[in-house]
Design a protein around this nucleic acid. Structure first.
Lengths: 343, 343
DNA sequence: GCGCTTTCTGTAAGCGCTTTCCGGGTGCTA
DNA sequence: TAGCACCCGGAAAGCGCTTACAGAAAGCGC
């Protein structure tokens, strides 16, 4: 016999011979319940394998125990690392994490925000560069604004324009500039840049930081030196291949992300070029794997798990004035064997 | 003025001058509503930035649109790849994915199942090897059984014992055996195995498959040849270091996962040994990065995203008799440059 | 134009839980 | 023993939605 699929609080209360109210109190410890009854309730709950219905609970006004995370693609090591940090903190707070991958589709991102809003998630975290696209910005704001009005918390990692929400901001510009300086110090004067789509703010910032610093040193970076492709390993491979097909003039290749750098490394290997003897390669992010490459990759190290941790902490922390809090995270140039001095 | 944080169906109905029922129908398209009214409702919803409360909806009996995924650690490339497959399918079905990382803590796994049960998730997916631990098995069953009774769907990837649920099973044993054969064919006769905790069924199976195949060929694998450590890059590094400290007798090292193999490669490099000249290294899983290592890693290739896709499809597919369906996925040995012939 | 079917629309119940508001024990004080 | 405060447990309301159920309106044939 099983009239209902799940046993309910009602069932537990009945089994324990108390009212639903008492059962609720006993289970949640809201108020003192005489040990005698409390034990009966707990035992009944155990026997019935009772699990409170989170929906009913949420509806009745209890706190929402889930946070939503939207990223481009979990299987990208960058997001995986950031998500890892988020999960750790969430786990400490007994929160469930709803993770969505947009696969870089702006519409899907907006749709996910809407779903998370429907779930009444305690917080929504947007991880990864936004798009420079007015339609998308408007649509996203239209979803986020009412959510914020309704007490929802939002934090973002790596995006800034237009969204007035708490932000964890890797210093892309400064990091790229620092990398430029480091590479200049190694004696490089001719560069190729492998970039993701410029519509991503992260890409734009890193290119700008890199270019500006070169300019300061009187080293030009022409448009033709920047090759754009998708923000993936294969994109890096393709971009590198394109650079090679045009005739490699550079002594150093800067990929705006490590993932693209990995593709570039593979392309170079496939073309019989060795790194760093024939050409130096540098990346950005310091995803865990790159120190284990041969050669290990020079990169701008970002504390990825911490990016996630800060973001969720920011979202979970009260923000009385609802002012926009920006938490900048510096990147640090780590010189490894993929870059060499120019003789 | 905002009496309630979110606008409700009630509000929309009022604004459109219809009843809540009609508003609900117009929004969901359940029943025909005169276009006239329908438009008014839709417009009102738009203006109020209305989002239905998913909890109320779930409580009222609508289908649950979320699936829960429990893995050991999203930032591990193996799980990231599997999760990627799951997300793709989920996205096609308009499902939200709640992803939890247990960080290999059995208790946390049980706790997460309980939370997912509370959420009335449409399905629960357990990704990654289980633990060989009777207490844990009992606790997990105690959570899962009532969930299944209540119509919940469960599918697992990579575990078998004790759980009577739909299963996607990489052929760990056969894959490891095939690897053993391939390595024997290359002329190797002395092996070291870098293993994760034996309490993980995956580890046990891979070791067993490998050992049995060697035995068939008359090649012994002594207990001392198997070094156990954590299931991570650092675990691989440590295990390899231990092997080296004992004096490397083997011509080939088999790591039970690619992640550990990456650590092993790093340890060898740090000790000035080159692969495959001084020693061959093989892994298992074929996580995306390993083909880009130098040297590229020989491994048993598992179709990781498909593992996830099959699992969620299995869970989402009706299973009338509630018989246990097992979907085996073969691994394929991919010989790359990290293994060489023994002269 | 009447009565029947066919289409909507509104009313109301109920999903499972928390929580406020009371009433009835209990224990302590006088 | 009476009186008071204090706890604790129960009844009931209500969270926002879906969905029978029933009633109203409209369409049809005769």
């Amino acid at each position: 016999m099983q009239p209902r699929p799940h046993s309910t609080l009602e069932d537990v209360a009945k089994a324990a011979g108390v009212s639903a109210a008492t059962a609720s109190r006993a289970l949640n410890g809201t108020t003192q319940v005489r040990p005698h009854l409390r034990d009966r309730v707990l035992q009944a709950a155990g026997e019935l394998a009772y699990t409170p219905n989170a929906h009913a609970r949420a509806l009745a006004g209890a706190a929402h125990r889930t946070v939503g995370v939207i990223c481009h693609d979990v299987s990208d090591p960058y997001f995986a690392a950031v998500a890892g940090g988020i999960m750790r903190v969430a786990s400490d707070h007994d929160l469930l994490v709803t993770l969505a991958s947009t696969f870089r589709d702006p519409e899907r991102e907006v749709a996910y925000v809407s779903m998370l809003r429907a779930e009444r998630a305690a917080a929504i975290l947007l991880i990864g560069s936004g798009f420079e696209n007015p339609d998308w910005e408007r649509a996203l704001s239209a979803e986020l604004e009412p959510y914020l009005q309704g007490g929802g918390r939002v934090a973002v990692v790596s995006r800034h324009r237009s969204l007035r929400v708490d932000t964890v901001l890797p210093e892309n510009r400064a990091g790229a500039a620092a990398m430029a300086r480091a590479l200049l110090d190694l004696g490089h004067r001719r560069f190729a840049v492998l970039a993701g789509p410029r519509t991503l703010t992260t890409v734009a910032d890193r290119i700008a930081g890199f270019r500006d610093e070169l300019r300061k040193a009187g080293v030009p970076l022409r448009t033709a030196d920047i090759v754009e492709n998708t923000f993936t390993r294969d994109g890096g491979y393709a971009a590198m291949t394109e650079v090679l097909s045009r005739g490699l003039g550079a002594t150093c290749v800067f990929a705006v992300t490590d993932v693209m750098a990995i593709g570039a490394l593979a392309a170079l290997r496939d073309h019989g070029l060795s790194v760093p003897e024939d050409v130096s390669v540098a990346g950005f992010d310091d995803i865990p794997i790159v120190r284990d490459l041969a050669p290990p990759l020079t990169t701008v190290a970002l504390p990825l798990p911490q990016l996630g941790e800060r973001a969720i902490e920011l979202a979970l922390t009260d923000n009385p004035g609802r002012r926009r809090r920006i938490h900048r995270m510096a990147g640090e140039v780590v010189l490894r064997a993929s870059t060499a001095k120019v003789l």
